[in-house]
Design a protein around this nucleic acid. Structure first.
Lengths: 292, 292
DNA sequence: CACGATGTCTGACTTTAGTCAGATATTCTG
DNA sequence: CAGAATATCTGACTAAAGTCAGACATCGTG
């Protein structure tokens, strides 16, 4: 049986049986879409714009849904202070009560579904769903080239730096962030790529030109998203970008404590070479010849 | 994280991303529900009644959907010869063409979703989905008491007999099926239980009164549904039924080749005892004292 | 063969979900 | 500061999905 067959079969069986999870929102006196909104807003106050991106709704439709929730007193709508075109949504006390009710219903429904399973089977299902969840999310993440000043890129780099600082024995200091730095990751010198899911960066990395070859830098994968192949995909994508920039050789450096990264590079055909830069944090240097 | 949390999280992520599998039916010039019907009818000719049970649709709504398909020449509707109230649906040639188109679109969509994954990740996802599929299906199977003459019970017993006949070294002959036999699995002497999913029996088993104690017989789980705990659930259910019939002790016999069954009984607290009947096929005899 | 149950159909209706074309206010860019 | 771009809102519309009450034919049972 092929993977697509399994996926399609699962989809049929699952949506038919578990789709009922959403039916638990019935009887709340509001359409399901509105209940989903309450859930999203409850997770964290959001702008209408963010909801539109996250849930993929038409702006007119969303506007009406929100107004409905406002009219019933579940949410308050206020202009965003930093950009008065945007409007920030917050749950009122009644909204939080409603959210609690929604949560309770979902939970009850989920319990009812899992109830017949023995603890052992439940654990198996939990593990399978967690794996499937991660892989499905990873498969649907979108890789996009962005400007290094894009908020997505900024966040990816910030988290990358924070992680190195935590994992390196004596911390990590990226030095002052000069505007010239950004220039390195802009065509024609280089590019920056992020993987995005639901509007959040889940992986990032850049290629720049250094010493006549391409150099891959700042590769990072969100901790919650590791083990799903995003690292390999990012690496492959950055190699493609290097080729597109006209390079035939790509290099990179790393530090011994980053064992997963080292494993990834070696699995991906990188050869260890001598020190080619003066990065004080680097302990390993790699090179790969790219197919034209 | 609890199982319900994982289930709910998966459900949110999954329906949002993969629900798109169904969007592939868009542009066929028919509502999604109609496309689903074509798929169901294509799998095997069905009656309207069966569709209603399987898809859980309102009879009026379904009637209209079917009439629409008929009007466009995708299905033919004929009275069932055995019961002229029922109507049998069959795909026409055009209907089969449409089904092929639907299949192609689903397949393309599934491919697109899986495409970004490496073969290794795809295999992992496939395994996870197959496990989740089995367990979700098992969790939602319904255990019902039925009369031993009920078609569901008949099918379960038939398949049970067929399997024993195949697995026993010299086959298995259940002997003539006497009406008195059925009586044994009817209150107040006994009961017959089947687990049902989408109208098909996926497990079955009976309790009868024999030699002053309860005896569990004819326990069977559909081969495609094994490894999901249906056997344990059926055993527990039959024990409960035995208690309800007023018994405090339940016995059963089995044959050495049925190793999973033996493992199940021993895991479930059954003690091996001496031969208590003259079943020529039995090699192992078990007993369990039931909590009141 | 009467009577209740079953299977299907019809008409009249509602809700949900969504689309699309502008209108308006605000912010960004040169 | 003009003009483009962005964020939201409004009105007018459609299609899909489903509900409900009742009508009608057929079947099984006593």
């Amino acid at each position: 049986m092929t993977s697509t067959t399994v996926l399609r079969r699962f989809n049929r069986n699952y949506t038919q049986r578990i789709g009922v999870l959403e039916d638990s929102f019935l009887g709340l006196g509001m359409p399901l879409a509105a209940a989903r909104l309450v859930f999203e807003i409850g997770t964290r106050p959001t702008t209408i714009q963010a909801l539109r991106a996250r849930l993929g709704l038409d702006s007119g439709y969303l506007s009406r849904l929100v107004r409905g929730l406002e009219r019933r007193g579940y949410v308050t709508v206020q202009p965003d202070v930093t950009d008065r075109r945007r409007r920030v949504l917050t749950l009122t006390d009644d909204g939080h009560k409603l959210l609690a009710e929604i949560e309770a219903r979902s939970e009850a429904k989920a319990c009812a579904i899992l109830d017949p399973l023995s603890p052992r089977q439940r654990e198996r299902l939990e593990a399978a769903l967690a794996t499937a969840d991660l892989l499905v999310r990873a498969a649907t993440a979108e890789f996009v080239r962005v400007d290094p000043t894009d908020p997505l890129a900024r966040e990816a780099v910030t988290r990358y730096v924070a992680e190195l600082n935590e994992r390196f024995e004596h911390g990590f200091d990226p030095g002052p962030l000069a505007p010239a730095d950004d220039e390195q990751y802009r065509p024609p010198h280089g590019v920056f790529v992020v993987a995005r899911s639901d509007g959040e960066p889940v992986a990032g990395g850049g290629v720049r030109t250094f010493g006549g070859t391409a150099e891959i830098k700042r590769m990072w994968v969100h901790p919650d998203w590791r083990g799903a192949g995003l690292g390999s995909r990012m690496l492959r994508r950055l190699e493609d970008e290097a080729v597109a920039l006209g390079h035939r050789v790509v290099r990179l450096d790393t530090r011994h404590v980053l064992t997963e990264a080292i494993a990834l590079y070696e699995r991906s055909g990188y050869q260890r070479i001598d020190r080619y830069n003066d990065n004080p944090y680097a302990t390993h240097w790699y090179e790969k010849r790219l197919p034209a």
